[in-house]
Computed example of a mutant assay.
Amino acid sequence: MVVIRLSRGGSKARPFFNIVVSDKRNRRDGRFIERIGFYNPIATAAEESIRIAQDRLTYWVGVGAQASPTVERLIKQAGKKAAA
Protein backbone atom coordinates (compact mmCIF):
# COMPACT_ATOMS: atom_id res chain seq x y z
CA MET A 1 0.00 0.00 0.00
CA VAL A 2 1.16 3.54 -0.72
CA VAL A 3 0.99 6.06 2.13
CA ILE A 4 1.54 9.79 2.52
CA ARG A 5 3.54 10.37 5.69
CA LEU A 6 6.20 12.44 7.41
CA SER A 7 9.90 11.74 7.05
CA ARG A 8 12.03 13.34 9.78
CA GLY A 9 15.05 15.47 9.05
CA GLY A 10 16.89 18.22 10.83
CA SER A 11 19.17 17.94 13.82
CA LYS A 12 18.65 16.99 17.42
CA ALA A 13 16.03 19.25 19.07
CA ARG A 14 15.39 21.02 15.70
CA PRO A 15 12.98 18.80 13.81
CA PHE A 16 12.07 19.29 10.17
CA PHE A 17 9.70 16.96 8.32
CA ASN A 18 9.29 16.20 4.64
CA ILE A 19 5.85 15.09 3.51
CA VAL A 20 6.53 12.09 1.28
CA VAL A 21 4.70 9.42 -0.66
CA SER A 22 6.15 6.04 0.21
CA ASP A 23 5.47 2.33 0.23
CA LYS A 24 4.17 1.35 3.66
CA ARG A 25 6.84 -1.35 4.02
CA ASN A 26 9.74 1.13 3.79
CA ARG A 27 11.27 2.73 6.86
CA ARG A 28 10.11 6.16 8.05
CA ASP A 29 13.20 7.95 6.79
CA GLY A 30 14.00 5.43 4.08
CA ARG A 31 13.24 5.28 0.39
CA PHE A 32 10.26 7.24 -0.88
CA ILE A 33 8.48 7.70 -4.20
CA GLU A 34 7.98 11.46 -4.19
CA ARG A 35 8.40 14.45 -1.87
CA ILE A 36 5.24 16.58 -1.99
CA GLY A 37 5.90 19.12 0.74
CA PHE A 38 7.40 19.96 4.11
CA TYR A 39 6.43 20.82 7.68
CA ASN A 40 8.57 22.90 10.03
CA PRO A 41 7.04 22.73 13.54
CA ILE A 42 9.40 25.31 15.03
CA ALA A 43 9.06 27.97 12.31
CA THR A 44 8.82 31.55 13.46
CA ALA A 45 6.05 33.88 12.30
CA ALA A 46 8.23 35.17 9.46
CA GLU A 47 9.03 31.67 8.14
CA GLU A 48 6.80 29.33 6.20
CA SER A 49 5.81 26.41 8.44
CA ILE A 50 4.00 24.15 5.97
CA ARG A 51 3.87 23.72 2.21
CA ILE A 52 2.04 20.99 0.31
CA ALA A 53 1.84 20.62 -3.48
CA GLN A 54 -1.96 20.34 -3.77
CA ASP A 55 -1.89 19.02 -7.34
CA ARG A 56 0.40 16.12 -6.39
CA LEU A 57 -1.59 15.44 -3.20
CA THR A 58 -4.80 15.23 -5.24
CA TYR A 59 -3.12 12.89 -7.72
CA TRP A 60 -1.82 10.48 -5.08
CA VAL A 61 -5.09 10.39 -3.16
CA GLY A 62 -6.85 9.78 -6.49
CA VAL A 63 -4.75 6.70 -7.21
CA GLY A 64 -5.35 5.25 -3.75
CA ALA A 65 -2.64 6.57 -1.43
CA GLN A 66 -3.74 6.95 2.18
CA ALA A 67 -2.53 9.79 4.37
CA SER A 68 -1.35 9.17 7.92
CA PRO A 69 -3.43 10.78 10.70
CA THR A 70 -0.78 13.45 11.27
CA VAL A 71 -0.62 14.31 7.58
CA GLU A 72 -4.45 14.51 7.48
CA ARG A 73 -4.27 17.09 10.29
CA LEU A 74 -1.57 19.05 8.45
CA ILE A 75 -3.59 19.04 5.21
CA LYS A 76 -6.54 20.56 7.06
CA GLN A 77 -4.22 23.10 8.73
CA ALA A 78 -2.73 24.09 5.35
CA GLY A 79 -6.23 24.42 3.87
CA LYS A 80 -7.31 26.78 6.63
CA LYS A 81 -4.14 28.83 6.18
CA ALA A 82 -4.70 29.07 2.41
CA ALA A 83 -8.33 30.15 2.86
CA ALA A 84 -7.39 32.91 5.33
Score class of each variant (00 low, 15 high):
K80W: 08
V2L: 15
R35V: 07
G64C: 11
K76F: 05
A53N: 12
K81G: 15
R25H: 14
L57I: 02
R31L: 09
D55L: 05
T58F: 07
E34M: 09
E47N: 08
I52K: 00
E47V: 06
K76P: 04
N18D: 12
R27H: 15
L6G: 01
L74C: 02
I52L: 01
I42E: 12
F17K: 08
I52N: 00
N18C: 11
N40M: 11
N40L: 11
E48I: 13
W60N: 05
S22Y: 07
N40W: 08
A13C: 09
A43C: 09
A65M: 06
G62I: 05
A43Q: 12
E47R: 03
G64E: 11
D29Y: 08
L57P: 00
K12P: 07
L6N: 00
A83G: 12
A84W: 02
A53E: 09
S22I: 04
K76A: 11
E48P: 03
T70Y: 10
A46E: 13
E72R: 13
T70P: 10
K76N: 05
R8H: 13
Y39H: 10
A78Q: 08
V20E: 00
F38H: 03
A82K: 08
E47W: 02
G64Y: 02
A78S: 10
R5S: 03
V21A: 01
A67H: 03
V2Y: 06
F32S: 06
R73C: 07
I33M: 13
R51M: 11
F38T: 02
F16A: 02
F38W: 06
S49P: 05
W60G: 03
N26K: 12
Y59C: 06
V3H: 06
K24Q: 15
A67I: 09
T70G: 15
F16R: 04
D29N: 15
R35G: 03
E34T: 11
E72G: 12
K24L: 15
Y39C: 11
S7G: 10
L74I: 00
V21R: 01
K81I: 10
Q77M: 14
T70V: 15
K76H: 10
P15K: 06
E47H: 03
F16Q: 01
R25Y: 10
Q54K: 13
V2H: 09
